[in-house]
Design a binder for these strands. Structure first.
Length: 293
DNA sequence: GTGTTTGTTATCAA
DNA sequence: CTTGATAACAAACA
């Protein structure tokens, strides 16, 4: 489940490998979530090169060497972006992974979940894999990108405008569970199910509490917890619960630090009692009923 | 066959 | 218009 720390991990990997890379061939395989349509996109990208790789919330943005043109990737639940160097094509047209690519993607690309294959003029490749086909690829111009970023995404959790006052403001009067507010991308960009559950545990707040019921001290604690968890998860290169790998096919390490997510019925690391799980805000929610009030 | 998984959007209701 | 709840989407797995 790529959330902010996972997308940021991929972004940092791709910046290292893709700056200056020039598209030479693009193949879209059995995948509909592409705009504009595949043949047009392939023709458009050919000869263009990459000048930057950015992120907004869970959205990955590749800036092209054409002013005001950007290639967007959303990984949704099971998307992967994997960079493959020293591409060696076999007789069957399958490329073998380069020596440093981790075995966790099966060692061979493309695989049956590869939805797009971008080939650069130096022979290197970028693979967009997506088991569930929820993700998308979209070419946009500057104004459209600006509109998407402005209308769909609130403050970045690690930016200055995400502060205690802001959190207090978006909680004021809200009858929704605090978890629902934290998951809302328009209010805070980049948090998903894993990090919301972890931050609420870290702050000792029950995910089902109505947002407007939180006291200032609790909001301060929650703000600090969100920043702390997100920073720690980026440092650990994200969480691989099922599917996530970085741009070199390696798993993230934050699963070692999870306190509640995926730990249903396991002992709470604070009080020893079993972690509970129930549906809140339409999502599986993990929490300790004794440590979170 | 059934239930579960989640990021996001659509839809509906108040 | 705002807010909140819920279904839907897609595909695999236990």
């Amino acid at each position: 489940m790529p959330e902010l720390p996972e997308v940021e991990t991929v972004r940092r990997d791709l910046v290292k490998h893709l700056l200056g890379a020039r598209f030479s061939k693009i193949e879209i395989i059995n995948f509909k979530n592409v705009a504009p349509e595949a043949t047009f996109l392939a023709k458009y990208l050919k000869g263009k090169s990459i000048v930057d790789v950015r992120r907004r919330g869970k959205l990955l943005i590749i800036d092209l060497d054409v002013p005001e043109k950007h290639l967007l990737f959303h990984l949704k639940m099971t998307g992967q972006l994997i960079y493959l160097a020293d591409n060696f094509m076999t007789a069957g047209g399958h490329s073998l992974s380069d020596a440093s690519l981790a075995a966790s993607v099966g060692g061979e690309l493309p695989n049956k979940f590869t939805r797009a294959h971008f080939i650069f003029d130096n022979g290197d490749s970028l693979f967009f894999n997506d088991l569930r086909k929820f993700g998308y690829i979209k070419l946009t111009d500057g104004p459209e990108l600006e509109k998407i970023c402005r209308e769909n995404y609130g403050p970045e959790p690690l930016a200055k405008d995400f502060n205690v006052d802001y959190l207090k403001n978006i909680f004021t009067g809200r009858l929704a569970p605090v978890k629902a507010i934290l998951l809302n991308q328009k209010l805070i960009a980049g948090l998903g199910n894993i990090y919301v559950d972890e931050a609420l545990f870290s702050a000792g707040i029950d995910p089902g509490r109505l947002a407007r019921s939180l006291r200032l001290e609790e909001i301060k604690s929650l703000h600090a917890a969100v920043v702390y968890i997100i920073k720690k998860a980026i440092k650990a290169r994200g969480t691989t619960f099922r599917n996530f790998v970085d741009a070199r096919g390696k798993k993230g390490n934050f699963i070692d630090y999870l306190q509640v997510y995926g730990r249903h019925q396991q002992a709470c690391q604070r009080c020893g009692r079993p972690i509970q799980k129930k549906k809140i805000a339409g999502r599986g929610t993990h929490y300790c009923q004794y440590c979170q009030k």
